[in-house]
Amino acid sequence: MTDNAAHPQDIPAAAADGRDAPAERRDLADVPAVEVIGTVTVHLMSAAAVKLGLAENGEADLDLDEARKLITALAGLITAAAPEIGSQHAGPLRDGLRTLQLAFREASPFPDEPGQGPGEKFTGAVYARA
């Protein structure tokens, strides 16, 4: 039987500019947890932005049900990880999450009540700054 599972040593290292660096590979054991958490959150944020119609294809990719799931998962991850990764790392992630939560509210034809939006069970109600 063939093993088709990805192995940690096969994970490409990210280049400084955010693109994959195919020539370089890093052993997952050498990657700090804060970097793994940051990478996962960036992927969730990017996917949520696409589902909110904020990417290249715009509203063609709009799917609020999918965006809600991604934003809720992101909120849970950031909320759980914040005490472990520290405010210097969690602060920018929270800002990005808040921006997505507000974009979701704006994209919704029938916005959720405050505290009922995606991820707000983890973050509390999100309001636009005046």
Rank of each mutant, 00 (worst) to 15 (best):
V42I: 03
P118H: 08
L28H: 05
V40M: 06
A15V: 02
F110W: 12
E113I: 00
G96L: 13
R105L: 14
G115T: 12
A75C: 07
Q88R: 14
P32L: 02
L70T: 02
V40F: 07
A73E: 15
T99N: 03
A48Y: 05
G117W: 03
A49H: 02
A73C: 05
G58T: 10
R98S: 06
G38L: 04
P118A: 12
T123Q: 05
P22N: 11
R68H: 14
A33G: 06
Q116E: 11
G119I: 01
A29V: 12
K69P: 00
F104G: 00
N57W: 11
A48L: 11
R105V: 15
V36W: 07
H7S: 13
K69Y: 09
L52D: 00
L97P: 02
P92N: 09
A80M: 11
G86S: 07
D65W: 04
E35T: 10
L64G: 00
A13N: 02
F122C: 02
H43Q: 08
V34C: 01
P92L: 03
A33D: 10
A16M: 07
R94K: 15
A33E: 12
P118S: 09
P109V: 12
A29D: 13
Q88E: 15
A23C: 05
A90F: 00
G76A: 02
F110T: 15
L54T: 00
D30Q: 14
P92F: 13
A55K: 10
P83I: 06
T99M: 09
M45F: 12
I37D: 00
Q101A: 13
R94P: 09
E84R: 13
V34E: 08
L93I: 06
Q9R: 06
A6D: 10
L102E: 08
I78F: 02
G115Q: 13
E106F: 14
P32Y: 05
P32K: 01
D27F: 06
G124K: 03
D63Q: 05
V31C: 06
I11A: 06
L28D: 07
Q88C: 09
L102D: 08
